[in-house]
Write a protein that binds this DNA or RNA. Structure first.
Lengths: 118, 118
DNA sequence: TGGTCATATGCCCGTCAAGTCATATAACGG
DNA sequence: CCGTTATATGACTTGACGGGCATATGACCA
């Protein structure tokens, strides 16, 4: 069915690993396109395209500094995601160390499915 | 480039709106497939497939109750996402009401792009 | 002004995931 | 046993998105 043009949910935006990498970079400090390009070792056109998506979704904004464009985080969409998570927090928020155990198991867990067998 | 089969990140999993809807349903209480089907008004095969994806990604687990399968939340993947958000929290966590203002603006903001014009 | 640096854009193509429909599996009630 | 209910699976189609490449735009400098 037809849908609103380009208005992807914030969740779809951060589904892309390279975009998450860019956001994580910008989390520490603002960066120009070239700096991102070098630190993440990805082609410039790719960086620019992802930045465009991020910008149109409100995750980042840019400041023009001479020939460079310096990008920085805008918090709103991330806040939305944070807000969506709220109803689920009651599921952990007691036993805190469960995450660590989980992350440990993920290390080599490229393996099989999860539940009971059909 | 070749990638590990089916090991989508937790972010990719919740990028799907129907899957988020299912998770939100399960956040309040566990539900059978049929109950999800009816409440979300989506075809059963679709529900089952999404549940499979969610199960293999560790978001849910199922309990067999007669002919029904009752699904419930597993917190770990959501905790991962919550953890990923941590470095960004410093961007809001002071002015709390910014989210509300943002969400308000989104109401009719099916509109244009964001930043400066080329 | 011409050249180079920095960034953005347009096009094409392969991939992959979601929807649909049909069907399989399996447990229940009679 | 049979039919019905509940859920899962498979095949197929379609559309969207990301990568790559070429190229456009625009600011700096000599």
């Amino acid at each position: 069915m037809g849908h609103i043009r380009g208005v992807e949910s914030s969740f779809a935006i951060i589904a892309e690993p390279n975009r998450r990498a860019i956001l994580s970079l910008l989390a520490s400090s603002e960066q120009s396109v070239g700096e991102i390009e070098r630190q993440l070792r990805m082609p410039q056109t790719s960086v620019s395209k992802h930045l465009r998506v991020l910008r149109e979704a409100g995750f980042v904004e840019s400041r023009v500094e001479a020939q460079r464009r310096v990008y920085r985080i805008r918090p709103e969409p991330l806040m939305e995601i944070d807000a969506w998570l709220a109803p689920f927090r009651r599921f952990w928020e007691a036993h805190v160390d469960a995450l660590e155990r989980h992350l440990d198991r993920m290390e080599q867990a490229a393996g099989k499915g999860t539940d009971e067998k059909p």
